[in-house]
Design a protein around this nucleic acid. Structure first.
Lengths: 164, 164
DNA sequence: AAAGATTGTTGTTGACGACAACAATTGTCC
DNA sequence: GGACAATTGTTGTCGTCAACAACAATCTTT
């Protein structure tokens, strides 16, 4: 009753009944092919690798880039606001900002209105650096386009727009 | 020259020039909206959460499910073959199999042809369990469909088919 | 003023990708 | 046939990341 899948292509059959060499491309994924999550996971790994490689010279990872971009576009945000907007744990954002602040890209300014919170700003150096990061990120995006096609990338963005 | 983005909607302006309460939905993402990787990351987090929640009662995570599915569909594979097919580090697969073997879902059988490798098989208990996991995974997939739409899910699978 | 909620912080846990090293075994090359 | 290289599973480390829990300082509410 359950699906059978082992025999992707019955080529190269050998006489002996025992195990034979199996090429990776003839291993069936069975139910996995119908799961969006599996494809998305594999794609996301590829994307992050390409991003990390393309921004390797400037040593910026995807999450760091997203934090810098949001702070750059919305100066003065609190850590809570940034964390909530990007779906990052606020505990995790602490370490991210520690790193970015050590690199003089971001500064935490004590808020006068709410002395619990910090207003986040890019440093002048951070703004300059972010401009460069954006150029490299655009280059990465062109790699994505080259990989899956221009129309497919746009459809992807449209389909997933609700999650941003 | 760089893009401006802070003012998503200029409502609720208050007289004072200082910081005001900022609702999460009015924080602009700036360049992030054009990045497929950001949308994919957010989507993947949602998918994994839903999968983990839907398969919560049976305590199976996405990676474990993928390993069980491939072994079930291709009995006798070596660890190397499974790792390569699923894009998992073979070092990581060792721990995954340790866990699955402890739970009596999978067994490692010493290969006669190549005494370095193990032939991986589901136990009878594992085969029964996998059938249940597949039913729950299908339920998760219906959640995905409900979330992004039937056609969008199919387009997604088609666009990302090359990464599986 | 007291009680409760929020903000940033510290710490822990576990999943995960990436690497490096190693023993056992197999394949290759001369 | 024997030295050398490659493969397989394993162990270990490192860094990223999501998920919690607890805490002090600081608002907010009542």
């Amino acid at each position: 009753m359950t699906a059978t899948a082992a025999q992707t292509s019955p080529r190269k059959r050998r006489g002996n009944g025992a195990a034979r060499r199996i090429d990776a491309d003839e291993i069936g994924l069975d139910a996995l092919v119908g799961h969006a999550g599996y494809a998305v996971r594999r794609f996301q790994i590829w994307i992050f690798q390409d991003f990390t490689r393309t921004l390797g010279d400037v040593d910026i990872r995807p999450t760091q880039y997203s934090v810098l971009t949001v702070i750059g576009a919305n100066p003065g945000l609190s850590q809570m606001a940034v964390a909530k907007r990007l779906g990052i744990e606020r505990a995790r954002l602490v370490h991210l900002l520690d790193s970015l602040e050590q690199r003089k890209l971001v500064k935490r300014i004590k808020s006068k209105e709410d002395r619990r919170s910090h207003a986040l700003h890019l440093t002048a150096q951070g703004a300059t650096a972010l401009a460069k990061f954006k150029r490299l990120a655009a280059e990465h995006e062109r790699n994505v386009e080259e990989k899956i096609g221009k129309e497919n990338r746009e459809q992807l963005l449209r389909i997933l727009a609700g999650f941003t």
